[in-house]
Design a protein around this nucleic acid. Structure first.
Lengths: 234, 234
DNA sequence: CTGGAAATGCGACCCAGGTCACATTTATTG
DNA sequence: CAATAAATGTGACCTGGGTCGCATTTCCAG
């Protein structure tokens, strides 16, 4: 990597904290950083070509990236998952070598490490331990996805929104950190509904005294009420 | 395993064909069979206790098992996935060691290999190659789950039913093999809807000449029409 | 063969949540 | 700092699909 020592330290530090690489030796991690290059992606950077991830693997250092599919019938995107710091993509193409029919887009400014797939595969040859870590990573994501599905079928849109907010409140600031800066359209895509619905629910949450909004930022004013909405669904 | 040679051959044969163990040496596979015991589960056998899979791992030799959660609000189960020959469970508890909040139930008579978790973990210590195979297995399931989600949000119940049928037709018999013997309730659980809806749609499919039913068996009479329903959703 | 349980068929009704249309506010950029 | 685009607020309306109730059929166990 052609970067200053400071920056390099910063990356190694981030990688060392990443559970995926915690079992990897310092040397091996250095080798990995050797074949990686840092990239800065501004908000709304897209990977629209699903074959792209056949050749390049990414590790997210900061920011947020959504993985989504497009719903032609309703002419709107549906976000399948949200990736943030320490997440990687695309594990499916890395392991199965087949195209993963999914698009990626940054939801805010994002830093990634970019690794050519063939070099990564070589590196993995010598560091088969990552399989175990990746497996843990994947089963974990899988369980989240199961929860997402139950949610979709069992709860109505207002509760899905409430849960989305609840799952992302920063207890310190009462702000919904990773969702700040997202439009109602984006929020809708995250819970499988429309901006109209999101807007209506946010309005009624306001009236109920659960939250207040300002310049595309959501602040929870009464966490308990929000919690109630999720658990005691009448 | 305390079983006759014939039966033993049959199991090894099945395991050898299982992609999860295709990279495992004969010796190692024998060792695995050594710590496994065969079990026969009649239809409707349940694993209702989620902590059970902390201690026991299963490999399905034949039959079908559903993994489901219960929807208290609507008082009905929701099937998250269907497991059949060569599937295993529960990978999540094996890898993460935490309880996986999910229940299992056989949908028909089923044969499984039962392996005590701690013995399996020992075996894996000496056969770390399975991590790679398990990872492939898991990412594959993951992608199916992504498709399930898009389906849930993008398509209405009739198309979801049509797709369920289409994905399981046996081109030889035109029968919907693995779904035969399931009640409308079970079918509903598989696509996240109610028996009423399933019933109505099956009726209208009949009228459209897509299928006919007899004694809880579904036979597709016009595959093309079914295909159309899935692709040209108006 | 038979009585009860389970599975299915079907009509009446209701509502969450989608669409459409348009006004209003907030960002962004020549 | 317009002016144009993007994001949001809101009302009117429609419909897929859920619930309820009950009749009918199919399946088994006794």
């Amino acid at each position: 990597m052609n970067i200053g020592l400071e920056k390099y330290r910063y990356y190694t530090e981030l990688m060392r904290e990443n559970d995926l690489f915690s079992d990897i030796s310092h040397d091996a991690l250095d080798q990995l950083l050797e074949i990686a290059s840092a990239q800065y992606w501004p908000k709304k950077t897209c990977i629209l070509d699903p074959t792209h991830t056949l050749y390049t693997f990414y590790i997210i250092l900061s920011g947020k990236v959504k993985g989504y599919v497009f719903d032609d019938k309703h002419d709107r995107p549906l976000t399948l998952f949200l990736l943030t710091q320490n997440d990687v993509f695309d594990v499916f193409t890395l392991i199965n070598g087949k195209v993963h029919d999914i698009r990626y887009e940054t939801l805010c400014d994002t830093e990634v490490l970019r690794i050519p797939m063939y070099k990564l595969k070589e590196w993995i040859q010598d560091n088969q331990d990552v399989y175990k870590a990746l497996l843990k990573y994947t089963t974990d994501k899988m369980m989240r996805m199961e929860n997402y599905i139950s949610n979709l079928i069992m709860e109505d849109t207002s509760i899905r929104l409430a849960r989305l907010l609840y799952n992302h409140v920063d207890p310190a600031s009462n702000q919904v950190e990773i969702l700040n800066g997202l439009t109602h359209d984006e929020l809708g895509a995250l819970i499988g509904t429309t901006r109209t619905m999101v807007g209506r629910h946010i309005q009624s949450f306001k009236e109920e005294g659960i939250l207040k909004t300002e310049r595309r930022e959501i602040e929870i004013t009464n966490l308990e009420l929000l919690q109630q909405k999720i658990s005691l669904n009448p």
